[in-house]
C-alpha cells in the first residue's frame, strides 16, 4: 500500500512531454462466472489526458473501466487474466486493499447517485472518509466550484442532494469524486441520463479537469469522444463463438481514430454502419 503512495508522489514531478502511463491495463480475459465478457484489451491510460472508450452496447467498455479501480470486485464471479498497474503497482496484488485503490482512482457513474444527505455532506463524504482535518468548508466550496455547481447551490448547501435536478446531481457526484483530489477519475457514461445543456456543462468541466486529473471516459456517444477525448479506444463485440465477448479493436489519438482508422470495423462504426 505504501508502494501506491510512493508511486503516486513520484509521478507528480515527471516531465509532461513524454506521456506517462498512469494506469497500465492489460486485460487478456475477463470472466463473470463462466461467461467470457472481455478479451485482449490493452488500454494504457495516460497522465493529464482524457482517454475515451467508445463502442456498441455490450462491448465491455464499462467492464474494462470498472476493472481499473476494482469496482468489479463487487460483482460476484468476477475474475480476469492480465494485469492492471497503477504507477507500476499491481492493483490486484494480494496485499493491495481495493479500498485504497479507489481512494486514488475516483469514479463517476452512469446514473447520478448522490447520497440521501445534504449537498454539503455529499461533497464532504470522501473528505471525512480520508479523515481530512483542514478547512472542510473551503474544500467543499472548491470542489463545487470546480464542478461548476457552486453558484447554483451555495445558498442551499443544507438541502438534500436528491432535491437537485438530474444534471445538477451528476455535477454534485463529480464534485464528490474530485473533492479528495484523486489522481485519476473514471467516468462511466456520465452524461447518458442528462439533457444536452447539462451534457455540455459536464463536457466543459471534463476539459477543465484534465489540467489536474487524468480522466478515463466511457461514452456511448461518438461525438462526445471527438469533443473531449485526446485518445480513443474503440471496442467491439465478438459474437462468433456463440458468446458476446467484447474486445479492443483499435486505440489511438482521437483524430486518427475518427479521420484515419486503421481497422475496417472502426471505419464502419464511426461512419454509423452499426451502433
Amino acid at each position: 500500500m505504501n508502494a501506491l503512495l510512493a508511486a503516486s508522489a513520484n509521478a507528480a514531478g515527471s516531465p509532461q512531454d513524454a506521456p506517462l502511463v498512469v494506469i497500465d491495463c492489460k486485460l487478456d480475459r475477463i470472466f463473470y462466472g463462466d461467461f467470457l465478457a472481455v478479451r485482449d484489451s490493452h488500454v494504457p491510460i495516460e497522465k493529464g489526458r482524457i482517454t475515451g472508450f467508445i463502442g456498441p452496447s455490450g462491448c465491455g467498455k464499462s467492464t474494462v473501466l470498472r476493472s481499473l479501480n476494482r469496482m468489479n470486485d463487487l460483482v460476484r464471479g468476477f475474475r480476469f487474466d492480465g494485469h492492471v498497474r497503477f504507477h507500476g503497482q499491481n492493483v490486484y496484488a494480494s496485499d493491495v486493499d481495493p479500498v485504497v485503490v479507489r481512494r486514488y482512482i475516483g469514479m463517476v457513474f452512469q446514473q447520478p447517485n448522490p447520497f440521501a444527505m445534504s449537498i454539503y455532506d455529499n461533497v464532504a463524504f470522501g473528505l471525512r472518509l480520508n479523515r481530512f482535518k483542514g478547512d472542510m468548508d473551503e474544500k467543499v466550496e472548491h470542489a463545487l466550484r470546480r464542478a461548476a455547481l457552486w453558484d447554483e447551490v451555495k445558498d442551499k448547501l443544507k438541502n438534500s442532494g436528491l432535491s437537485l435536478s438530474g444534471g445538477q446531481q451528476q455535477r454534485l457526484c463529480i464534485a464528490r469524486a474530485i473533492a479528495t483530489e484523486p489522481s485519476v477519475v473514471l467516468m462511466d457514461e456520465p452524461c447518458s441520463a442528462l439533457d444536452p445543456i447539462a451534457t455540455r456543462k459536464i463536457e466543459e468541466l471534463m476539459l477543465e479537469l484534465k489540467q489536474k486529473y487524468t480522466i478515463a471516459l466511457v461514452t456511448h456517444n461518438m461525438q462526445q469522444a471527438t469533443r473531449v477525448a485526446d485518445r480513443t479506444a474503440f471496442f467491439s463485440v465478438d459474437i462468433s463463438k456463440g458468446g458476446r465477448t467484447g474486445y479492443l479493436v483499435e486505440l489511438g489519438d482521437t483524430k486518427q481514430i475518427f479521420e484515419d482508422p486503421k481497422e475496417e470495423l472502426t471505419k464502419q462504426y464511426i461512419s454509423g454502419e452499426f451502433s
Binding site: 469496482m71 481512494r103 457513474f109 447520497f115 463524504f125 472518509l129 469524486a177 479528495t180
Partner: peptide, 24 residues
C-alpha cells in the same frame, strides 16, 4: 448505485454500511 457510490469513493465495507446504507 448508492452502494457503488460509497465503494467508489473508497469507503470500507463498514463505512459503506454505517455511513451510507443504514442512513439511506
Amino acid at each position: 448505485r448508492i452502494k457503488e457510490a460509497a465503494y467508489g469513493l473508497g469507503a470500507t465495507r463498514w463505512e459503506a454500511i454505517l455511513k451510507v446504507m443504514l442512513p439511506t
